[in-house]
């Protein structure tokens, strides 16, 4: 495993219910390398958060990992539990969620939250940690950072809170950041600030990032590679420019076509009929076949198409147009 900070192999998450076993994450595979931003896109319920939560050991019962492996910097982590998982998470993985308040303790001054986190995971003195805390806030663009160490989370605006969360996520110098919809609740102009900040910090430090979002525009601007999830499975995985400009999987193609951004000047948007299947009623074969215009008999039967090292999990990937020569 060369440069990979995170490797996910055949990861499967299952939820036992009275009606049967649901599989919100179904045999997915990907790596994230040092300094790389991997975007995870897909519609609501596709399993993006479940996959991220599995990596950080934050699955809510009764959901649990039932197959596959997760490797972080060459160490297998999917079987860690309790205190071991908590320590690993604090030291090696930083987290940024949609709602900054889930990551901040409302009763603690933010300077103390930063200092405590550093003291727990880094070998430094309290005095030094406090200085580093001020520097960290300054780095994420909090004005007059040294004076804000004594403020409580509620004294910041939504955008400023998310900056504090990023400072907190990065202060133990993790090798991986998992950002689950970090800008979804923010306005366009604040979103641009937060994205620029994440990009800069990760590039400077070589941190690997898993960026989960349903916003294709954010992915296009931010990610190096992108994984498209559909009904718990990976539909497509590749270089962001390739996937956005020449999608191979019919679902990715439909997703692109239905974003108003991509259909500039068209009177009607391209639409995919129907909606994503529920976990309780997963079709046989390719999960996309009921909505797919290219579906043939083979698509409706098992075994379903897999990525297998290629770019898309589809029996009939859309052909790339011949290389346009200049």
């Amino acid at each position: 495993m060369s440069e990979a900070v995170l490797s996910i192999r055949n990861l499967t998450v299952e939820i036992p219910t009275r009606g049967g076993i649901l599989r919100p994450v179904d045999q997915i595979n990907y790596d994230i390398n040092r300094g790389e931003i991997l975007g995870i896109v897909g519609e609501s319920g596709a399993g993006k958060s479940m996959a991220g939560n599995a990596v950080i050991g934050l699955l809510n019962r009764p959901a649990k990992i039932t197959g596959g492996e997760i490797w972080l910097n060459g160490t297998r982590i999917d079987q860690l539990e309790g205190e071991d998982m908590r320590r690993l998470r604090g030291k090696h993985i930083g987290m940024v969620f949609q709602d900054p308040l889930t990551s901040l303790n409302p009763l603690l001054r933010i300077g103390d939250q930063l200092t405590e986190t550093m003291l727990e995971h880094l070998d430094i003195s309290r005095d030094k940690a406090r200085k580093r805390a001020a520097a960290a806030l300054d780095e994420v663009g909090i004005p007059a950072a040294a004076q804000r160490l004594d403020s409580y989370p509620h004294e910041f605006s939504g955008g400023m809170r998310q900056r504090v969360v990023i400072a907190l996520a990065l202060c133990a110098e993790p090798s991986l950041i998992i950002a689950d919809e970090p800008t979804t609740a923010l306005d366009v102009s604040v979103q641009a600030q937060i994205i620029a900040l994440l990009k800069r910090l990760c590039r400077d430090r070589g941190t690997a990032v898993m960026l989960i979002t349903h916003d294709m525009g954010v992915i296009a601007e931010t990610a190096d590679r992108v994984a498209v999830m559909y009904a718990g499975r990976l539909a497509e995985l590749g270089n962001v420019r390739d996937v956005v400009t020449h999608p191979e999987h019919p679902y990715t193609d439909g997703l692109m076509g239905s974003t108003p951004l991509a259909s500039k000047g068209l009177k009607r948007l391209r639409q995919i009929s129907g909606s994503m299947p529920r976990l309780t009623a997963m079709p046989e074969g390719c999960a996309f076949h009921p909505r797919c215009e290219f579906a043939q008999d083979i698509c409706r039967a098992e075994p379903r198409p897999k990525l297998n090292g290629g770019r898309s999990a589809c029996h009939f990937p859309i052909q790339q147009p011949a290389e346009e020569t200049a």
Binding site: S157, G159, M160, V188, S189, V190, Q191, A192, Q193, I195, A196, K199, D215, M216, G217, V218, A220, E221, V240, R241, V244, T245, M256, T259, L261, A262
Partner: peptide
């Protein structure tokens, strides 16, 4: 400012100066 900050589908690796202030 608003239009410059909005994500672009063809904005691969775009580096923008994000808007200032709130």
């Amino acid at each position: 400012m608003l239009l410059a900050a909005a994500p672009k589908m063809d904005g691969f690796g775009r580096e923008i100066d994000p808007p200032q202030g709130e």
